[in-house]
Amino acid sequence: MHKILEARFLAENIKLFRIEAPRIARKRKAGQFVIVRLDEHGERIPLTIADSDTGAGTITIIVQGVGKTTKALNMKERGDSIMDVVGPLGMPSHIDKFGNVVCIGGGVGTAIALPTATALKKAENYVITINGARSKNLVILENEMKAVSDESYVTTDDGSYGFHGFVTQKLQQLIDNGKKIDFVLAIGPIPMMKAVADVTRAYKIKTVVSLNPIMVDGTGMCGGCRVIVDGVSKFACVDGPEFDAHVVDFKNLADRNKMYTKNERVSLKHFEHNCRLDKKINEIKTMND
């Protein structure tokens, strides 16, 4: 059991948790993830570690409620517990002194980009961050990103805050303005990562993405998280999750991630039904009391 020491929403539907996990906190490096199982009936889902505190023995994860498990997780509060937290898994981000680097986070991907941006800053890179969201109310970690950046930008798709447009448009603008860029990290929805790869490919800028395929064990045993990189199958859990964006088969990843769309709908419906049921039962109980 891993106790939740802090739980707060960063934006609508996006919640930060600080969890007791001393062994993981001690080992964790930027880019690594944990596998979480909420309870006895739970599934195992991978979540990137956003931060850790060795002294306090805690790790931080930032979760967007999408399916049943993430929605159930986001209902947890300080003092609640998570049954299983395993990690740190995956290879750490490759940190080097590249020169000028651009770290792009799209939506909740910003939470995953932040620790690597921090590490790149520590390695004496000139760090530019682009923090993209659909709309102003969904922008997360603006100050945290700014704190590790030499230049930082927020973009919103609807123009409600910061630069009006996609992260790729901001990136293109930087390139067009003659900024020399040596390395790009892009983490976010698959279409965004693909779009960034398409922009940087033309300029031969080394670009890395962090992939989020479906996973079960996270240790290389099941092979469910395989992705095609440069025509070869790689396991995101032991070979990744970061890969060279210019040779990732994004279509295969997107299609494979849709494998359980139907099941996910069923699971969510089942969950919401049970939630309503619980609420009703509590109402009746209170009435009876």
Binding site: M221, N263, S267
Partner: peptide
């Protein structure tokens, strides 16, 4: 890597360990 191609490890783990045959009472599909 088509959707629908499993390794035996994944297929059996989903059923045996994660109890996918009791979905949606168990979460793993």
């Amino acid at each position: 890597n088509l959707v629908g191609v499993y390794t035996a490890n994944e297929f059996l783990t989903r059923v045996n360990l994660m109890k996918a045959y009791q979905f949606p009472d168990y979460d793993s599909p």
